[in-house]
Structures are given as structure tokens and as C-alpha cells.
Design a protein around this nucleic acid. Structure first.
Lengths: 355, 355
DNA sequence: TGCAATTTTCAAAGCGCTTTGGTAAATTAG
DNA sequence: CTAATTTACCAAAGCGCTTTGAAAATTGCA
């Protein structure tokens, strides 16, 4: 059954050529006649010969592997919901370039140790940093280890001299907040990601900047930082909507809490888009499409899968030419108006009276 | 910066020992004095020596790597939503056992080629089969290739002589359907996964078995097979609820279409759990927790992360002892009653009149 | 035709580990 | 106190590739 596969020695003897020539033929080196190369390639196909990856990696000194570390909080048992789509995008690029993707699932407290080990074992040629925190220590670590890496996102204060691909989070959240202000909303709740996440900081800054530019007071009681679950959206919105001085609009950092907010709104007997407005950041998760002529949610959208592709390509380029200038790329999110937003009730009242 | 790491030769010279002894000390072989072993281990820590994984793999002939193939449909750009949680579970086990996880993202049409290549390159010691279809050809392929593998799920007709870990899908769906029947529902819609998926077949069979055991006619117009998105749930429920002879209950194959159904119900001005009942299969996705004293949805729950752990362990065991009897494990889903179900309106009316 | 330049092929030396088949030292037995 | 084990270590031979340096075959040009 398990027909032990042929090795280069056997295969080249079969062809009556040396191992050198066969190896060169397979790897596209010029020192081999075109007719010989074709003969080799045909024979490889016919006899189902594939060079052994383990031997190849040792001989070349390259792992042809990119590492992704997926930290899983033992307490929350939470895994980043955008992870699957991001990795689907990155994986496409790896496949196209002959790289493997090594995924290391680790308890979040031993994340740094995991990076260290991957590098010192020589298991990877490069690493992706997911979900950077404010002043993330992994950046210094990886620089010290001297391994190529690209950050998906940025880390405040130190956004120079390392590669990153990020969405313009501040601008995106400033825009959606202004959009709500233009509709007459004044009490706008922000359901943000965990406070130590870099993206959450930038989004918060965009939200605050928008309010301040219109002289609307920033109310800390309307700003929330939590893991972006559906329940977070639901519980927070339920509480706010049933209290005094309820917000008329919500800004959510992901469609997932957005769905929870929607549930709370309808539980309260209200209508989203009329009584309460909601905007979200839409990562274009594949199973929650928020598109079409009139999407369910007004959103700033930026495909996380596309980000995955860009990050992967940037890393592959960096591995090829480690001395090239660092790749820093800012993606802009697109603001799309859906059915979840409308004029603030107070404004509508005023306008109606004016008739 | 990139202090090229030490190799065994240098490290053993530094210790004044042979490479053999150092290697044996590190790998826990008995032919080395305990005091020597400690010396070696200490020195390894002090000088930050880690054996090179590439060399180790070549020397041992083992990849110490498990392959997961993630097919991504180029048309739908869809990635299985349970994938992230499953892999988080499996990855825990791999980490604990010194295995790496190789994730191969491929266009769904070239999935088989991807398995072949991983095996013939010797990149993996074993493979996980995700999302088996009815009569899935990958099982025969992997058996032919002679590589250890475990299927997450099963494939109809051929559920003997290969390793699998599955949820008792038929029983779960039979139970929830009976549960709805007990509440007086007679028109029950089924929002199932794609028709060629094995799990969908089994769930459909459970649903049908329940109806037949109560002599309720099976209406094909109430059975749907699609990719399990939120929109699938929304559009299907919207259409059904606005038509004649609308169902009074829905069974959904995942919480995601369940959320869409909930949205359609509230859009229609109805109340879930009173006017329309909904039950779901709950994979316990980390960002959609459906737990607590009274979960939002009545559900049959089976943690996909737990399944990932079991599948991974089964594969590791199989790699260690390939001739052991095949591991076949059936997980049972737990039925938990939440707020999304209640008596069928018709039954309630009858009972109310009887008062 | 002859000799240098070029193209094509080859033998052998790594890559950094593990593992086999020893040997010297330490221990036990007689 | 010597012989027979056992223990603790070592030198060297792989693992299956790539790549270097050299040789053989082919080509170019006078």
C-alpha cells in the first residue's frame, strides 16, 4: 500500500543522469539542455517523483514556511473571528509562491516563547504578527531575533522601521462618526475592541476627533472596550437603551457586536435605522456578507481577506530582499450606507414641525 | 543582529562532549548519565541552543507535522465558519505533543492534488479531513496514499475501516424536531447545509425520521440546502413568513443562519419564541456564545473546538501506532432549551379555549 | 583542422541532525 | 584480584537533497 516513494538517487539512475542534472532540471537552472529538462519533467510526472521537502529544506537552509501564531486565551477560549478569513487570503498567496503555512496555536501567555522557538528551530522563514497591541513587545522581539516579519496592523509609537499593512482605522471611525453627527445624532455609543489593542485605540481616536471637531462632549459612559462578541453588543445596547438618556446611535467595531445591538434594538420594540442608528466596521467576513444594493448595516468596509493577501505578499517580498526599504501600506475603508442608519429622532421631529 | 544560531557540532564542542551524547541527552535516551544530561540541558538553556527542526526532520524521517487542507471556493470566497474554532482545539493538542500544524489553503477544485502533494513531498505525517461530503473521494485517496488520517465527520456508505470523530447529527436533529413537534408545531422548516455535505444528509435524515414517526407529512418546500450564511437564514425565513401556510418553526444547521432567521422574524413584526420557534445546531463558536441560564436559542450543542481536540488526539495516536484498530468516536449533542422556542400558536389557542 | 570558449554533465562535499556499531571506563561477580 | 558485565561515551555513516568545482562534450572561429 504505502509504496515508499522514490528518491533522487533512484530517479536519476532510472533516467541515466546524475543527481545534479536532475535536480537542476527540476529547479529550472539554466545549466541544463532544454531537451534534457523536458525528459526529466516528463519522467517525474510519469513516475510520480516529488523531491522530499524535508531534505530540500535542510539542503537549502530555507524552511519555505511562514509562521502564524494564534494566541488563544485560556480564560475566554476566544479566537479572533477575523482570523479564518485573513488566513484564507494569506494562504492563497503562499500557495501561489510555494510557501507552506505553519500555524502555531498557543496559550496567550506563552506567545513570545512560541515566536522564539519557531525561529530558533529554523521552522519558519518569516512571521506574521496578528492583532498588535499598543506598544506591542513582539515587534522588538522579532527585530532582535532578526527574522523577517510583517504586522497586520500597527503598534502605536513605533510605526517606523518595520513592515506593516493596516487599515486607516482612525479615518474610518472619524468618518462614520461624522456621518452620524450629520444625521443629527449627538449621543453616540462606541462599542470598541479590547482597550489594549492598537486598532481599538485608533478607532477610539477617530471617534473622539469627530465629536470634538463638532464640539460635542465626549461621554466616557458611552465608550466600551470588550471582546467583540455578539453578546457584548446585545448586553451593552440593552442596558443603554433601557436607561436614561439613551444613545440614538451606535458605532461598533465589528459586525458581530453589531448583530447583538440589532437584537437589543428589536427586543426593545424599536426599529434599527429609524429609532436607533447603527454603523459598523465591516471586515467582509465571508459568512456575514453585508453587501448588495442596500446592505443591512451602514458600514466602513475593508476586506480582511484582502489584507491577508497584501500582508502575505509583503512578507514574501521581504524574505526575498531583506534589505529593501520596509513595506508600509495603508488601506482605506469604504463607507457604504445601508439600512441601519437614519436621521436622529430629535432632528426629524424638528424638521417635521417645520413643515 | 541575526546571530546565526549554534549547531550541534559547535554546541557539543563547547561542552567537551560528542554530538551523540548531546543529542541523546536532549532527547531523553537512557544511555547518558543523569548528571551529564543536566549539564547538557542547562547549557542548552544558557546558550539558547535549539536543535534545528529541518535537520531533525530529515534525520528522523518524520515531519512532526499534521496537515489541514482548507478548501476555499473561488466563486463564493467562502471559508467554513467553524474552521477557526476547530483548529484552535486541534492546535492545542499539537502544541502539547510537539507537532506543527501545516495549513494548506487551496482552491476547492485542486483539493485532491493538494493532499497528494503534501504526502509525496513528505511534508506531513498525517492529515485531517474536514467537511466530508457524501461518499467523499478523499478517504479512498488517503488510504491509497497510505498516510494516517482522521475524518472530522463521516462519509456515508463507507464509515467502516477509517478513523473518524463525528457528532450524532441524525439523533440531534431527530431530537430537536421531536421537541418542536411536542410543542405542537407541524410546519417546520429545515435550513440545512449544502446538500452534498455528509453532515447535512444525516441531519436531514433525523428531521425526516422525527416527522415520519409522528405521521407528519414531509414537505420538500420546507427543506433548504445552502451555504450556512446569515443571509441564507434571513432571505429564506423572510420569504416563508410572508407567504401562505408559513411554518411556525425553523430548524437551522448553525447559529449563523439562525441569526438571519431571527432578523427576518423581527422584521416581520413577530416575536421569536412566541409567534415563531427556532432551534439551531450550536457549534459553540467562541464569539457567538449561546449559553447562560437561558440562552437566546434553543439548541443542540456540540463544541467544535472539543471535536478538534479529539480528532487531533486520535490522529497523533494513529501516527504512533498505525496498526491499532481504527478510532471511531461518536459525540452526542446536548439539547438545551433557550428563549427561541415555545408552543405552536395553534396549540396555544386550543389550550387557551379549553380554560 | 585545431584550439579556445562554451555548454552540458558529473562526482563529491556539505546541510545539521539521529543512530548504528563500537570502545574505554566503571561496576559487579566469582 | 581478575573476568564478565554494564555503563557512559564516541566516531562515523546515513537521511535526500543542493551546490561546488571539475571534467567531458559540444560549439565557434581562424
Amino acid at each position: 500500500m504505502n509504496k515508499k516513494s522514490m528518491n533522487l538517487k533512484e530517479f536519476s539512475e532510472l533516467l541515466g543522469l546524475s543527481q545534479t542534472t536532475v535536480s537542476r532540471a527540476l529547479n529550472g537552472y539554466p545549466e541544463v539542455r532544454e531537451s534534457t529538462r523536458l525528459k526529466v519533467l516528463d519522467a517525474a510526472r510519469a513516475h510520480n517523483y516529488t523531491p522530499n521537502a524535508r531534505a530540500k529544506r535542510l539542503a537549502t537552509g530555507k524552511a519555505m514556511t511562514i509562521g502564524h501564531v494564534l494566541p488563544v486565551s485560556k480564560k475566554h477560549e476566544m479566537v479572533n473571528p477575523i482570523f479564518a478569513d485573513f488566513i484564507a487570503g494569506a494562504g492563497e498567496i503562499y500557495s501561489d509562491n510555494g510557501f507552506d503555512l505553519l500555524l502555531s496555536v498557543v496559550d496567550d501567555v506563552s506567545e513570545e516563547a512560541s515566536y522564539r522557538k519557531l525561529v530558533s528551530r529554523g521552522a519558519v522563514d518569516g512571521l506574521i504578527v496578528h492583532g498588535p497591541k499598543v506598544n506591542d513587545s513582539r515587534i522588538a522581539l522579532l527585530r532582535e531575533l532578526g527574522v523577517p516579519f510583517v504586522v497586520h496592523g500597527r503598534s502605536t509609537e513605533i510605526d517606523t522601521d518595520y513592515c506593516w499593512v493596516d487599515v486607516n482605522n482612525k479615518r474610518a471611525f472619524q468618518r462614520v462618526t461624522e456621518f452620524l453627527l450629520d444625521l443629527g445624532h449627538r449621543r453616540i455609543a462606541l462599542l470598541n475592541g479590547l482597550a489594549d489593542m492598537d486598532f481599538a485605540t485608533r478607532r477610539g481616536a477617530g471617534y473622539v476627533a469627530a465629536l470634538e471637531s463638532r464640539d460635542v462632549a465626549v461621554d466616557p459612559a458611552l465608550m466600551f472596550h470588550e471582546e467583540m462578541t455578539e453578546n457584548f453588543g446585545y448586553e451593552t445596547a440593552r442596558r443603554l437603551l433601557s436607561g436614561d438618556n439613551a444613545p440614538t446611535a451606535f458605532v461598533a467595531s465589528s459586525i458581530i457586536p453589531g448583530i447583538g445591538i440589532r437584537r437589543a434594538i428589536s427586543d426593545a420594540g424599536l426599529t434599527m435605522g429609524r429609532d436607533v442608528s447603527v454603523v459598523i466596521h465591516d471586515d467582509a467576513l465571508s459568512y456575514f456578507s453585508n453587501d448588495g444594493d442596500e446592505p443591512a448595516f451602514t458600514a466602513v468596509r475593508s476586506s480582511v481577506r484582502q489584507a491577508g493577501r497584501h500582508v502575505a505578499q509583503a512578507l514574501i517580498d521581504r524574505i526575498a530582499t531583506p534589505d529593501a526599504p520596509v513595506h508600509q501600506e495603508m488601506l482605506e475603508a469604504v463607507l457604504t450606507v445601508g439600512r441601519s442608519t437614519g436621521q436622529a429622532p430629535a432632528l426629524r421631529q424638528v424638521l417635521d414641525q417645520g413643515k
